[in-house]
Nucleic acid binder design. Structure first.
Lengths: 252, 252
DNA sequence: CCTGCACCTTGATTCACATCAAGGCTAATA
DNA sequence: TATTAGCCTTGATGTGAATCAAGGTGCAGG
């Protein structure tokens, strides 16, 4: 069997293809946490018709870059992506990690240009949802319109939580909160909430949480010593969920 | 002339009233930067019909509180508000300041409950836009739907800029960036971009920028000494816009 | 197999901002 | 006019995370 190298040349343009990537929303096992949520099955069919699926993105390939024309939002079918902005002095601010079932790209709507870049942290399958079609469909399907408003609102509240985390919490609390967030999102997808492999590097974690690599590493060591986490490079096991919650100290 | 004390008892419920607050979107001088932007005049009329105006909010009164049922989004007609969350340990994270023409409350859509509280920093007149009506109207008016998507997206990108600011920038840069932001927003409303009165306290600024009052105060003193700002309590004059931009160091 | 490189860890030192402490200014109220 | 309370400023000291530095680990390619 041949390996499908995505042929985008890392320029962010996904070319349609007719391989086994052709799943549909109706039978996608993520449809209960993704866009189709809240739609009737005949409505799902219509949504499905506007969605474009393409060859998977390889690790480190970009889905889009800051400043690119905004055409579509994207749903993650498999793999993980990070969204990030590059500051003028070349440093990188990671604004989010996106797991299967999650939607990204909504920050591009306001200026018709992507406000951040998105890059695959590992091989990733993506559903592309052309925004103009989504708008038309939303006008016709109140449930879809409502759901998309909610998705955007969720993005806002999540950003606000990150703002609070960055502004008020210690390094231990920040890393703890991220581990809990990943744990929760795994649970939503019926995966283990206590054992997982981190798709992102320590550098990415640092750039997301406003910490340096060294600090992130030290926090992991500390949590390991306290028997809260078992850390083996990217393999994480949560040994003491209550202890982790206490450490994260988020009141939720 | 009698003084109109708002009779909400600070419980966040605005009661309709029939006083001189009755303006309409068609003649509101903010309509070029507010929701009506991008609407034809007959469409503006329809939007106007769903908007409720009430007695002004007095200083320190709440428009809504974290956890309140979400019913409406709000536009600021005059005055300034702050949105904030209270952390479990009682500290306050200010998530945004809202000036005339700006929309707040969109973070409540995702859970049908407000994710933050909003409080008037000075007497403020507010337009209330019931969300269910806005949804219906959006289905009928593609331009309105599009504009509201864009407003939400703008909120996301602004939050992301704050995230970057908090995670990567020094105290000087953070305060500088806020001054520039206020300056720009004043310009949009045809007010002076170089002289203004801060509606918020030093504590609020600190809680927004992730700094203590003392640090905020010291930054102002430093900028004054460098002849970048003239600071007289809440009265600010920008003396050296270029210097301020350099100090804020935001590349935009 | 060795080599190189990317990524992670650990220790020593430094520094920006928090914390602690005190005093000043302004405005509302008696 | 005196009194109080809220807000702001300034100085001295402390500290958590950044920075600097070095070494370890695991994987890809020759």
């Amino acid at each position: 069997m041949t390996i499908h190298l995505a042929d985008t040349g890392d320029n962010g343009v996904l070319k349609p293809c007719t391989h086994e990537y052709q799943v549909n929303c109706g039978n996608c096992r993520l449809n209960s946490i993704c866009l189709p949520l809240a739609l009737e099955s005949d409505d799902i069919k219509q949504l499905d018709d506007i969605i474009q699926r393409s060859k998977p993105l390889q690790k480190n390939q970009h889905l889009y870059r800051e400043g690119d024309d905004f055409q579509s939002v994207f749903a993650v079918r498999s793999g993980t992506l990070k969204a990030y902005k590059t500051t003028d002095d070349g440093r990188e601010q990671v604004t989010g990690f996106y797991f299967p079932g999650e939607i990204l790209g909504m920050d591009g709507i306001s200026n018709n240009a992507h406000a951040s870049s998105a890059k695959a942290l590992e091989t990733a399958a993506i559903c592309e949802i052309p925004f103009s079609s989504l708008e038309k469909l939303s006008s016709l399907m109140p449930n879809l319109q409502r759901h998309f408003f909610q998705l955007m609102s969720r993005e806002i509240t999540e950003d606000q939580q990150l703002i609070t985390l960055l502004s008020k919490n210690s390094a231990d609390e920040r890393v703890g909160a991220l581990m809990l967030s990943i744990s929760t999102r795994n649970a939503r997808r019926k995966l283990s909430s206590t054992q997982f492999r981190l798709p992102m590097s320590r550098v990415d974690i640092g750039n997301y949480l406003g910490l340096t690599v060294e600090t992130v590493s030290r926090v992991f060591s500390r949590m390991q010593k306290m028997d809260i986490l078992q850390v083996d490079n990217k393999e994480i096991e949560i040994l003491d969920l209550e202890g982790l919650r206490t450490m994260a100290n988020l009141g939720r």
